[in-house]
Simulated scan of single mutants.
Amino acid sequence: MKNLFKVIAVAALFIFGAQNVQAQSLSTSQDQRPEEVAKMKTSNLNDALTLTGEQQRYIFRALTANEVNMRKNVTGKDMNNAEVKSKKIELDEQLDGAMKKTLTADQYAKYKAMQKQ
């Protein structure tokens, strides 16, 4: 039963992903909903790291939460402000922790290398 659910979920991701690829325009991440940004980032990570379905779900949730919190606490605010800087560092560490927890050691090493670019 769990495998059937996983197959259906992955198929739905591919179907909706294909529709979004056709409908995408050149817009900034601010114009897009946090879920859309997280979906694109998850797709990019899946292409680079070959994620399992479960990893995709966890990473999508972590990226969505990170995007929402960044927009609420960091985006559009003065980065010279110590409070904003500390909040950004905290959110980045939370995302990094979620990635480290979800990804295998090899995948995490590749992820960190991608972040440095």
Rank of each mutant, 00 (worst) to 15 (best):
Q94A: 08
T64Q: 14
K100P: 03
L95V: 08
V74G: 07
S86K: 12
L95A: 07
T75E: 12
E67A: 10
A62C: 07
Y58N: 14
K100T: 05
R71I: 08
L63C: 04
I59V: 12
K85H: 09
Q94T: 05
K87V: 04
Y58I: 04
E90T: 03
G76E: 07
D78N: 10
T52Q: 04
V68W: 05
V84M: 03
M79Y: 12
T52E: 01
L91R: 00
A62D: 08
D92L: 02
K88A: 12
I59W: 02
Q56K: 15
A65K: 08
R57K: 14
T52L: 06
D78C: 01
K77C: 01
K77L: 08
R61E: 15
D78A: 00
G97Q: 10
E90N: 06
Q56M: 15
D96N: 11
D92T: 00
N69A: 15
I59S: 00
D78M: 01
R61H: 15
E83V: 08
A62Q: 02
D92N: 10
R61P: 01
G97I: 07
G76A: 05
K88W: 06
K72V: 08
T52K: 10
V74N: 03
N66E: 13
Q94H: 10
G53H: 05
E54S: 10
L95M: 13
E83L: 06
N80T: 04
T64V: 13
Y58L: 11
N80I: 00
A62Y: 01
Y58H: 13
Y58P: 00
A65D: 15
A82K: 13
N81R: 06
V74R: 03
A62G: 05
G76W: 09
L91N: 01
